[in-house]
């Protein structure tokens, strides 16, 4: 096995383990910490694919800004106490059956699916660099890129509108 392959398998193992810990951890702070680890592993995958710009952005935006927000929210909410389960056994059973069916279907599909492999000889190694990303973003995907700003504007207007303090009582 080559060195990159070993790195790939190690990274993948850590990614999967930490991602499953995100969902299973009882303490939300542990969840968030595991999520940060997952993001760092994904960054490692980006580096392996020669996408340095995405790797940097992933760390700055996801592992940095978003996770800080997550931690802040959790600390504000003070979720330390264990919430008693509100789901009935029937709901849990149904959820397990539905999730299990989805898992089986997915596994079956991925086993049978064939994805054309890349030929290392002809692979364009510059594909993940910031230059080619800019070319794609500002040439092919210019319209959705610009319209995404409408999305952010809506989100900002909404955040300000909903976040402003309002006088008066709450009612049902």
């Amino acid at each position: 096995m080559k060195a990159t392959e070993i790195i790939f398998y190690v990274l993948t193992a850590i990614t999967l383990l930490s991602a499953s810990f995100v969902v299973t951890a009882r303490n939300p702070v542990h969840s968030v910490l595991a999520l940060i680890l997952t993001f760092f592993c994904l960054t490692g995958h980006y580096v392996l694919m020669n996408a340095q710009f995405l790797a940097a952005v992933n760390i700055i935006v996801y592992a940095g800004a978003i996770m800080v927000l997550f931690l802040f929210t959790i600390m504000f909410l003070n979720l330390q106490k264990e919430d008693e389960e509100s789901k009935t056994t029937l709901t849990k059973m149904a959820a397990v059956v539905v999730g299990g069916v989805l898992l089986v279907v997915m596994v079956a599909v991925f086993r049978a699916a064939s994805v054309a492999p890349y030929d290392p000889a002809t692979y364009n190694t510059r594909v993940g660099l910031v230059e080619s990303l800019g070319m794609v973003l500002y040439k092919d995907y210019l319209l959705p890129f610009e319209l995404a700003s409408v999305l952010f504007l809506v989100a900002m207007v909404g955040a300000v509108m909903l976040g402003k303090r309002e006088p008066g009582d709450r009612h049902f």
Binding site: V154, L162, G168, R170
Partner: peptide, 9 residues
């Protein structure tokens, strides 16, 4: 956002 626009409700 519009669903939640009646903030005191």
């Amino acid at each position: 956002i519009l669903t939640g626009s009646d903030k005191r409700n």
